[in-house]
């Protein structure tokens, strides 16, 4: 594992703790998009089905289990939060899920000539999870643009997700150069996803960093 991927993973991990801290300490899920969190849960469940059949390392196994468990818990907390009407969580997620699923059926890493039926279904679900992750932040972005009183911790949560994406891009450059490791589906989707965060970072700069006490 190179430093770029490790920093990316740690930033991803930090994003979970930031969101959990916001939910637990403010006792409010205001400003948190249930739709984005439900999409992330879908992403992790679809992608980490290989948890059961492909052991890579304890690091990977534990991170996968944590990502699924933490996102499930976050979805549960936000969904059952009584103090959050989430009237602004209005993104039409079917416009994200259906195209991602259709694209995954046609553009994936399946090899029907070999491997079992179930392994190829897992490849389709892997591609689906990659495409869905790329756009899963859109409901949250829409909420941030509509809400006036977004808490800083929600913004820091988004920033850590953006840092995670940026470092994964560096990781892929490194791995392509030094290892020949190259998953074009993940890389293209990762670039799209990182570009979506560029929009957020402009907002972050204006609303958080410019307001920091000197």
């Amino acid at each position: 594992m190179n430093i770029f991927r490790f920093v990316g993973d740690m930033s991803h991990l930090a994003s979970f703790f930031l969101l959990l801290a916001k939910l637990i300490y403010t006792k409010s899920s205001t400003g948190v998009s249930l739709k984005t969190q439900a999409l992330y849960l879908t992403v992790f469940v679809c992608r980490y089905l290989d948890l059961l059949v492909a052991f890579v390392s304890w690091y990977n196994e534990l991170m996968k289990i944590f990502f699924i468990a933490a996102s499930a818990y976050i979805v549960y907390v936000v969904a059952t939060s009584t103090r959050n009407s989430n009237a602004s969580d209005t993104y039409r997620v079917e416009f994200l899920v259906i195209p991602a699923l259709v694209l995954a059926c046609f553009v994936n890493e399946t090899h029907w000539s070999k491997g079992g039926w179930s392994l190829n279904v897992m490849e389709i679900l892997w591609a689906f999870s990659i495409y869905l992750e790329a756009v899963a932040v859109l409901p949250q972005l829409k909420m941030l643009h509509q809400l006036e009183d977004t808490t800083n911790i929600t913004m820091h949560y988004m920033a850590s997700l953006g840092i995670y994406r940026a470092f994964y891009l560096l990781n892929w450059v490194y791995r392509l150069y030094y290892e020949g490791y190259w998953h074009p589906i993940a890389v293209v989707a990762g670039i799209v996803q990182t570009l979506l965060y560029a929009d957020f970072f402009i907002l972050y700069y204006q609303s958080v960093l410019l307001r920091l006490p000197s």
């Binding site: 991927r5 993973d9 890579v56 890493e109 994964y168 490791y181």
Partner: peptide
């Protein structure tokens, strides 16, 4: 060998 190397990322 498969077209793509094994997926070992998160």
């Amino acid at each position: 060998a498969s077209l793509a190397p094994a997926k070992d990322e998160l």
